[in-house]
Design a protein around this nucleic acid. Sequence first.
DNA 1: AAATTTAATGCAAAGGTTTGCATTAAACTT
DNA 2: AAGTTTAATGCAAACCTTTGCATTAAATTT
Lengths: 341, 341
Amino acid sequence: MSKPRATLKDIATKLNISISTVSRALNDHPAINQKTKRSVKSTAKKLNYYPNLLALNLLQKKSNTIGVVVPEITSHFFSSVITGIQDILRPSNYNMIICQSEESYKDEVEIVENLMRVGVDGILVSPSSSTKNFEHFRRLKKSGIPIVVFDRDCPGLEVDKVLVDDYDGAFQAVDYLIKSGCKRIAHIGGPLNLSTTKHRLEGYLDALKENDIPIDKKYIKHVKGFTHEDGIKPAKSLLKLENKPDAIFAVNDCIAISAMYAAKMLKLKIPEEISIIGFDDEPHSSYFTPELSTVWQPVYSMGMLSARILLKRISNTDEKQKLREEIFKPELVIRASSKKI
Amino acid sequence: MSKPRATLKDIATKLNISISTVSRALNDHPAINQKTKRSVKSTAKKLNYYPNLLALNLLQKKSNTIGVVVPEITSHFFSSVITGIQDILRPSNYNMIICQSEESYKDEVEIVENLMRVGVDGILVSPSSSTKNFEHFRRLKKSGIPIVVFDRDCPGLEVDKVLVDDYDGAFQAVDYLIKSGCKRIAHIGGPLNLSTTKHRLEGYLDALKENDIPIDKKYIKHVKGFTHEDGIKPAKSLLKLENKPDAIFAVNDCIAISAMYAAKMLKLKIPEEISIIGFDDEPHSSYFTPELSTVWQPVYSMGMLSARILLKRISNTDEKQKLREEIFKPELVIRASSKKI
DNA sequence: AAATTTAATGCAAAGGTTTGCATTAAACTT
DNA sequence: AAGTTTAATGCAAACCTTTGCATTAAATTT
């Protein structure tokens, strides 16, 4: 049924000319006769010929494919970054193999290994929350495959990086809460070996310090995952404390929404009794009641810039260009879940 | 800096044996001496050899890569389907190139063309909302690349399909609304040439008919896109009608949430004055106030099954197996945004 | 008419792997 | 000792493309 795909040879045989002439004709090589070109092109069309990129890849030792490794793609955050990446890659004729580590170090190592084997020209990666060792990335770099780390930093790994100033975002949020009159500000943070999470915690702590508010460990909780379910328990336990907090700064919007949900279950008024601020500014966050205050980060731009840097690195391969580390600034978005100043 | 990757030839030269012996040794061919195998394997490791899949692909005319074409990946729906797909593909050693059509027919055609060129072994596709012509898929099929359509049907296209009974989901939802006492049920639908949207509309209409409720065109609106923003205007215009509806069945959760938002703005009580039901059951839908009633569909399973069917089709290529059309049943999930029966 | 330039095309290698068939040398059988 | 089997390895083609160099034939110059 499916006749095998036409090759240059098929065209050459049909026209009784050599393969090289066919190749050159199709590529509009100047040394080829116009008539030949026309006849080649027309039979190419007739045979439904299109070049075999696998052969080309082998020849050029270049696959025009890049690998993208993320913890998961179901979150709005990563799917938006990926969209940004793709919008740069497509016009440059690069394809993208997306892989999810599912926050597993083991899977991540396997994925990187696999991407190396299939011959991607470069890799964009946001490491899993359980990744503490970066040897797999170093191996990659050593085999000449450029790599750009985005969002989640790998301290000590010498590669291009595109990050967000999480510390600043957290600081802004907590500082705002203090300025709006909150005294007992709690934080629900994420896994501690994630740079993002750690920096948000630090921003929280420093904002308190700078405003001379004592740090109280009972106001600090951590979640293992980033879904709604993960947030309910810590939020409830915070809100049931004797001297319960009057504000919660959550590590992301999902957790913040869980906190709102928990607060409502406990009949607490938001923001009168409890202010809540999240992180990420997901599209639906502004549709909750009350509308969620949060910290916006330029996800789409982050994806685009990461891809641009990677492409540049791929084309400038042997150059000893110095490493780039770009840090985007997040923005505090105040809505109705936090008191006005 | 980056020394070129080791090849079979490098190993062969180093050990003074032929390339074929090296190849066979690495593949544990029975006709190779144990000693030879050991020495080959050890030098392979020493040289950090790993096979060049590009060469293998060319030889076998098989890339172990499949293409996934979706309108977008930022929605929870598609990113979940993709996760299902990946969880089947990974263990089978297939990689996945994901492409977004952004609901553009033109982009979709280009993407399919490109996937064909790069030599994917098969394609999973959920067509864009502006795709009315399926020639690009037929061309694909004709060149022997199997294709599985999921979620959004392509009527008249003879390929494997994995769909959801949208008609049934809509019927259940609207029938429930009627049973709960609603009399004036509105519908905010999506683009009309999408099978999913069309079937949901039909389910809505039939549920009304079957319950002897006259159909009133002023209660039916359509959105072009599926985001929150798209939903606000039609929702408002419905809720501002003289004889305003007492229920809204929305084409998906995003639009339903916009409707809730609009209702709240107009100080309408949900569900007392207006019941609202969505479609999709996104994870955050149960965290809204009131919690959104909706129609759940087995997205993850849909992804897995689509991938399974495609893989089977790829391995059973020349067989004239008959086409599969699997239809998943959705489930009505009643929460607080609709009156109890 | 011979020598030189120009235009058009072809040959063959290279890229890395697998595999059918051929070859070699050793071990066995008669 | 001659013939046959067995074990281990090598040769070369195939997958499809691009491209430097060589070749051919025609056109131009002397």
